[in-house]
Amino acid sequence: MSGPVTQNRAGRPALAEPLWVKALVMLLALGFLGFFILLPLAGVFTEALRRGLSTYWEALVEPDAFAAIKLTLLVAVIAVPANMVFGIAAAWAITKHKFPGKSLLLTLIDLPFSVSPVISGLVYVLLFGAHGLAGPWLRDHGIQIVFAVPGLVLATMFVTFPFVARELIPLMQAQGSDEEEAAITLGASGWQTFRRVTLPNIRWGLLYGVLLCNARAMGEFGAVSVVSGHIRGETNTMPLHVEILYNEYNFVAAFAVASMLAILALVTLLAKSLLEWRHGAELAATTRRH
């Protein structure tokens, strides 16, 4: 018994836990991760590849599936940059300026998080649908929003717009406006101040917000489902297409498309890790606090 005790006195740091505690905690964390994340992920891929690679490939290049993949990417490509611009503008306005209605704006930003996605979709149907408020006018001018790509983009933007702003607001609040003021006294214009000082200071937060926004934009189901109309090959995004295939007992195809969604998510995460790894030294130098 005296052995471990002297070892303790000899110099184990106060915060070091016994080996069995370490092992238990690690096992718990890894077990959880494996059961809830890795296992389903593996499940998706095994189901998708059950009939072999060629069936898997055929399921993906099948015209309707391919259209769904293209549509999902198109929606994300429009919605994510739009929300990036909006998120930066909102965070900038809220954290660097005082204006009436500021707290109202702050509350409104959270609205898409608190409202059910189905309602978010329904709002656009009520506004722009055939019997909606703007319906007759849109019909007379030959503009189709609901059950078409514009409706999908609108619903996706609505659902994903808090991500960037929510990520940036606390960050910019913590940073204050000292550096911007310093830039201005040194002769920088408003745009130079934003590009050279504000933007570099928030870029990691921005990247994270954009990634989250992108993940949700590609994966959104509820709101998109309401405005889509489920027209195969035209208004079905990937999540909607997965559901249709699944309901038709076409499991291999459903999982193949699902695996494609998972791959897109993994690529996004990989891109983030790669950026963090490449800029690791700078990141450590500029975010560590004293």
Binding site: D178, A182, A183, G187, P200, T286
Partner: peptide, 30 residues
């Protein structure tokens, strides 16, 4: 920027993402 004054802030307000060199060069670059 038109006043040509130099301002040193209480908490320095150095640009945290720039090196010392780039901090000092900022006013010359803009």
């Amino acid at each position: 920027h038109a006043r040509r004054v130099g301002f040193v802030f209480q908490h320095y307000a150095l640009f945290r993402h720039m090196t010392v060199f780039e901090n000092v060069a900022f006013g010359l670059r803009v």
